Each structure stands twice: as structure tokens, then as C-alpha cells.
Amino acid sequence: GSLMYASIFGNVSAIIQRLYSGTARYHTQMLRVREFIRFHQIPNPLRQRLEEYFQHAWSYTNGIDMNAVLKGFPECLQADICLHLNRSLLQHCKPFRGATKGCLRALAMKFKTTHAPPGDTLVHAGDLLTALYFISRGSIEILRGDVVVAILGKNDIFGEPLNLYARPGKSNGDVRALTYCDLHKIHRDDLLEVLDMYPEFSDHFWSSLEITFNLRDTNMIPGSPGSTELEGGFSRQRKRKLSFRRRTDKDTEQPGEVSALGPGRAGAGPSSRGRPGGPWGESPSSGPSSPESSEDEGPGRSSSPLRLVPFSSPRPPGEPPGGEPLMEDCEKSSDTCNPLSGAFSGVSNIFSFWGDSRGRQYQELPRCPAPTPSLLNIPLSSPGRRPRGDVESRLDALQRQLNRLETRLSADMATVLQLLQRQMTLVPPAYSAVTTPGPGPTSTSPLLPVSPLPTLTLDSLSQVSQFMACEELPPGAPELPQEGPTRRLSLPGQLGALTSQPLHRHGSDPGS
């Protein structure tokens, strides 16, 4: 009898404990919600809404976190579960008819179910419309201010047509639940991603989709105040780019002037030289400038040598048109050559190039014969006009050509200096018209024969001689050997007369 009593008592207590286990969990969670309300000092109306929603959600799901349970299964099984949970929507909604099984599984994985109690606001006026909503159960109302403009029910759709707008718009009203509602919502990016994977279904979906109420604000059109608020930074940046392009296009129409201050000032006329910023005076940081632009901040801005204009002085008759350009485009679109090309026009420029290279940067340069637009006047290309890779490749080509020119210049200078040193070592320090008596009659020769300089066969020296023939050397430049009979510069000019005159010897006659 005691054994029977113990078994009955144990079973009854276990049954009672299981009955009250759900209630215990409910009270535990309710205590957490109330502690949250007390800690954050939530006001009474919002506090009442929180408690009511918790009670309804507990009775609806029995305190089970559906998302946590669903995430515990593998992905393939999750797709089947989501397809079952959203079967009513996918079967009865017209846009989803005719979709393949794979497309429906992908869509079912992207849908999220939302449960809303009465009085809950789903979308506020001015919120971004980031999702498309399908009503599965219940009814909602749409308000503009305090005026109800629409009441939607089961199988209705609200949001915005995503295929017509590249960016999400703003809501033009509040969406509030009238009863307990079940909503299926899919985010904008998720829907577009699935439709991109199934393009054959995309056309059918957009053609058959009928949005019951379009929440997009109709005033959000390009150029409206609301649109400016939504895309303020983007609009200002776009206007700045367009104004920069218009100014650079105007600059290219004036090829007669070359400016070292950047493309923003290349198009300024002579009357605007004294102004601080020219056409860019209202925004000094709008356009890029070269490193020399920092010198323009000092006094005497109108007389600054940074602004270059072609000189009108005539060229000498024998002067060549100019050196070879550094870039391939210089032959086609440049009416002034790079300062480095002028360094190779003569030997005198070679000796004085490194010492006063900055001073020569603004000297007169030889002109190319074609009066085409200036290379320095070409505006900086924006990322939309020329690819970045093209600019980098041009810079690399320019750097390689500069290296080759520097190597060639160093070799030419070394060769010229070597020839000058050899000339100085071969010439005796001094010569006299009267020579010392020699031991015999073989001493009648006034000077030792001097062998002429070897013929220069280097390509670089031939180019130097060509430049010497075309360029007029300055007075202080050293002379180079030329073709024809060679003669030492330090010898007297009348050596031929010395050989014809008898030598005057000093000596005593033994017979006297």
C-alpha cells in the first residue's frame, strides 16, 4: 500500500510541476520586462504597450523563439521550412505564380514574418522605404497627419515599386495596425538579389506586381527641396563636378596662354591676372594647382613670374625650331616645348642647366612650328573623362623618358669634360720664339709635331656638333674642335714665318 501511495504521489506532483513550468517561465520573463521598464524609466503609455505586446506574443508563440529554433537546422532544411511557412503567400499572390521551385525557395529564405499588435506603428512618415510588405492577416491604416487616407487588409501590398527607383524613397505617411496583424516583408536588397539570379522571372514579377498603396513621397523628385535634403551631399558634389568641367572646357578654348597655377587659371584673360583667384576666387580649394602655386600668395601677385606667355621676339635665322618633346602628345598638341628640351639645344645650356634650372624654367623657349593648343594648358582630366590607368601609364612613360634624357646628358657632359682635359694635357705650358741651342744640326726643328685630335665617332658628340652648327654659343662658352686643319689655341699665330727665318745662335768662333 505504501508503494502504491508513493507512486501516485510522485506522478501527481510531476504533472503539477509540468503544468506550472510554463507559468514560471512566463513570470520570469515578465519580471525581466518590468525590470527593464523600471531601469530605463519608460513612461506609462509606452510601458503599457510593452506589457501588452509581451503578453500577446507569449500567448501567440508560447514563449518560443522561432528564429532561434529555425537557425538550429541546416540551410537546406531551413529553405523547406521557410517554404512551408510562406506557402499561403507564395501560392495566392499573383506576382509569385509561375516561378520555379528554386526561385520560390530563394524568396522564402528572404521573407521575414512580423507580428504587430493593435496601435503599433510599422512605418513612420519620413522613414526610408527599405522593404516591401505583404499583409497575411489583420488590417492596417495609413495616416497623413491625423487623416486616415487608406485601410488595407489581407493580401494587400504596400511599399514602393523598387524597379522604378535606384534609391529608396521616404514614406509619405504613417502605417498603423488596427488589429493583430501578420506581415511578410522582404528587404529591398534581398528581393533585387533574387531577381538578379532569376532574370526570366524578374520581368514577370515586375509586370504582375500591383502595389495597393504606394508609400513613396511624390514630392521626392529631382530638383525638389525634399530631394535635395535626401541627396544633399551627392547633389552638391555633382554640381561641383559639372562646374569644374564647364570651366576646364572654357580653358581649352584659349591656347595662347600657358599658366603654371593649374587648370583653373589657364583660361583667365590678361585683365584677371591681378585678381586673387581668377574664376576660382569664390572657392580657392575647388581646383588643383601645381607646386608653384604656393608662391602666388606673396605680395606682387600681378607681377609674379609664374604666369607664362609666349615671347614675341624673333628667332635667329640659324636657330632650330626646338628640341624633341618629352611626351608623344607634344608633337601634336603643344605650341611651347618643355623646359628640359631647351637644355639640349647647345653645349652652353648643358654647362648651365643644373646651376640655374629654376631660373631657366621661365626663360624664352623655342617654339614648335605648329600653332596647336598648349601642352601645359590642357586641363586636368576628371576620373569620369580619362581612366586612372591611362594617366598612370603616361606618367610612367614620361618618367622613363626623363631617365633616358638624364643618362644621355650625363654621358655627353662626361665626354666633353674628358676631351677638354685631354686638350689641356697635350698642350705645353708655354712657348717662346727663341729656342735653346741643340747639340747638333738636327735641332733646327722649332717644335715637335703635334698629332691632331682623333675624329669623334660617338653619337652623342655628333649631336653636340649638330647643335653647335645651329645654335649661337654665348661669349663665355668653350669652343669644341671642328672639322678641318686643327691648330692649338695656345700656339702663336705666325708659326709659318718662324720656319722661314734663320735661327740666331749665340757662340764663340775658336779662330777669332
Rank of each mutant, 00 (worst) to 15 (best):
S508W: 04
S508I: 07
L409I: 08
L242E: 12
A131V: 05
L456C: 09
P510C: 04
E472M: 11
E328L: 05
R137S: 12
P161I: 03
Q254E: 11
L132D: 01
P305N: 15
E160Y: 03
L420P: 04
D251P: 13
S171H: 01
P437M: 11
P437K: 15
H184L: 07
G267P: 12
G159C: 01
P383D: 05
P475Q: 07
H204A: 13
Q466S: 12
S374V: 08
R400S: 15
S410K: 12
A433S: 09
R388K: 11
E392Q: 03
Y133Q: 03
K241W: 13
N403C: 11
L192Y: 07
L164A: 09
R144G: 02
N377C: 13
S283N: 12
L128C: 08
T228P: 07
T130M: 09
P299I: 02
T372S: 10
Y431T: 13
D174N: 07
P168G: 03
A497N: 09
L164P: 10
L209R: 02
R404V: 05
S136P: 02
S460K: 13
K185D: 04
P439H: 09
P441G: 08
G496H: 07
V450S: 06
S345Q: 14
L498V: 08
P288R: 10
P255R: 12
D146E: 10
S348T: 11
A177R: 03
S285E: 15
R386K: 15
S139Q: 12
P439Q: 09
T252R: 11
P452E: 08
G264L: 13
D203H: 12
G264S: 11
Q401Y: 09
E331M: 05
N155W: 07
V464Y: 04
L162E: 03
K250A: 13
M220W: 04
P478K: 15
A343H: 15
E319D: 12
E297A: 12
D335M: 13
W206R: 06
N349R: 12
Q254Y: 12
S334T: 06
D156I: 01
G496D: 04
L195F: 10
A477E: 13
M220E: 12
P492N: 08
G359E: 09
I140D: 01
K241Y: 10
E479K: 09
P428L: 09
F234A: 12
I142N: 01
S352Q: 11
E193K: 07
L242M: 08
L230K: 13
V434H: 15
S208A: 13
S410Q: 15
T212P: 02
P449T: 09
N377Y: 04
S235W: 07
G346M: 06
I135W: 01
T407S: 11
P316N: 13
L261A: 12
I350N: 07
F205Q: 03
N172F: 08
L453E: 11
F213D: 01
M424A: 09
R144P: 01
L498G: 13
R408C: 08
N349M: 03
P485M: 15
L380N: 15
P161Y: 14
S302N: 13
E141I: 05
S227M: 10
S302E: 12
R247E: 10
S304C: 07
D296F: 12
H187L: 12
A497C: 09
D356W: 13
L183C: 10
